[in-house]
Design a protein around this nucleic acid. Structure first.
Lengths: 228, 228
DNA sequence: ACCTGAACACCGTTCAAGT
DNA sequence: ACCTGAACACCGTTCAAGT
């Protein structure tokens, strides 16, 4: 049988006639690897290999690993960001943003552990935040309250998306069962069956969250009623 | 001047007369490094060095890096866990647990990014969760609801503790200011001054959270009132 | 400008040797 | 049982050489 060479030189040294890489192709391939295999698997070597290139080549297009984090973040944020929330009432805007946020990260749960714990530097993400803040502040919210709402929403959505979808489950049913924690064992055991209910549960909690904000907003508008 | 040897052999090979390490001393030193320098700095080499030992020695006491994560988690959880919540009314139990959770992680913000994204395997943590669930279920909560409350509480507390205290801020005021996001720039710029208000704000949101749960519990007990 | 191979510093982990 | 030095495999990153 004829064999392919074991070590494949994907390309000989020297500038190629047409660039082999783009920021965009790098970003998409990185996200694909993370979705399939998790963050730790997304090494410069594997990423380069799947792009038909050697790892040092990446440094001509991206600012190392931090740059790759930025690119992946921008890719996910692009799924979330909807400029149209500016025209919505604040409660609809919060709901819309929350759902989009949840859905995007449910689709890419393995990105959460790095994206949620890494400094935000890319413009796309900052603009998305700014749009959210403007929408609320434009409707009478105090800025710090709007920022709290943003953070609260993020953590709610990320928590749900991560806990139920991530590769490395926080609570492995097998581990839990081995210890003396029967209730915890029950709730983690059933969890996989309930996967379909998760979005529904999230929606529910999101609604509660919005009601919570509504009370706050009403209060900040003063203790007097319109119709005493 | 007499100089200390540059390379210090902390101890010659062979079994020492008295063990140089303990699970506990390793755990405490690891937490100290993380608090001071952040997770990435807590390498096996530095940890061993600060304990007056070479890195391979650690493997006689701990199951590698994963084992160290478990030890650090147990240390932080020991600051949170309070068995007495079992005797409290559910709303007091939630408040007490939430505050303890927040305070512990505010004191160790650099642990969050690994502890919150790593599988829980240690007994101490599982017992703490189990106690929380038992307290709520024992007062008529449905188990899935109690679990949601636990997750929601964790994410609320972790989010606050991390966002305001961590080494690597998610939003660096300098970076934000350089982009076109004036509201976000304002809120992140002021944030450092407001550090003292953070706990107060958290308490506020925690209270709202509990009220949210109260509505849910009331509803699940049926639509009829005690006194029609 | 852009890809290559070689090289560097730095990881975690294993293990035989020594007490 | 427990610490050591040596060794291994694997990282990210830099850089001179080549087109």
């Amino acid at each position: 049988m004829a064999e392919m060479p074991v070590v494949d030189p994907p390309r000989r040294p020297g500038r190629p006639t047409r660039p082999a890489l783009t920021e965009d192709t790098i970003a998409r391939e990185a996200l694909a690897i993370i979705d399939e295999l998790g963050w730790p698997a997304c090494t410069m070597k594997l990423l380069a290999h799947r792009l038909g290139v050697r790892s040092p080549s990446l440094y001509h297009h991206v600012d190392g690993q931090k740059g790759i984090v930025d690119l992946v973040r921008a890719l996910v944020v692009r799924e979330i960001h909807n400029p149209a929330i500016q025209g919505m009432r604040w409660d609809d805007a919060i709901r819309s943003f929350g759902i989009a946020y949840y859905r995007a990260f449910s689709g890419h749960p393995n990105t959460i552990q790095v994206l949620s714990m890494t400094p935000v530097r890319d413009r796309d993400t900052l603009i998305m935040y700014e749009t959210f803040l403007q929408t609320l502040v434009g409707q009478g919210w105090e800025l710090p309250r709007a920022f709290e709402a943003l953070l609260g929403l993020e953590h709610l959505a990320l928590g749900f998306a991560y806990e139920w979808n991530a590769e490395d489950l926080m609570l492995d049913p097998a581990v839990v069962a081995a210890q003396g924690a029967p209730l915890l064992a029950e709730v983690t055991r059933d969890r996989t069956d309930q996967a379909s209910d998760v979005e529904h549960t999230f929606m529910n909690l999101l609604g509660r969250h919005i009601e919570m904000f509504r009370h706050e907003v009403d209060e900040s508008k003063g203790p007097h009623h319109e119709h005493p």
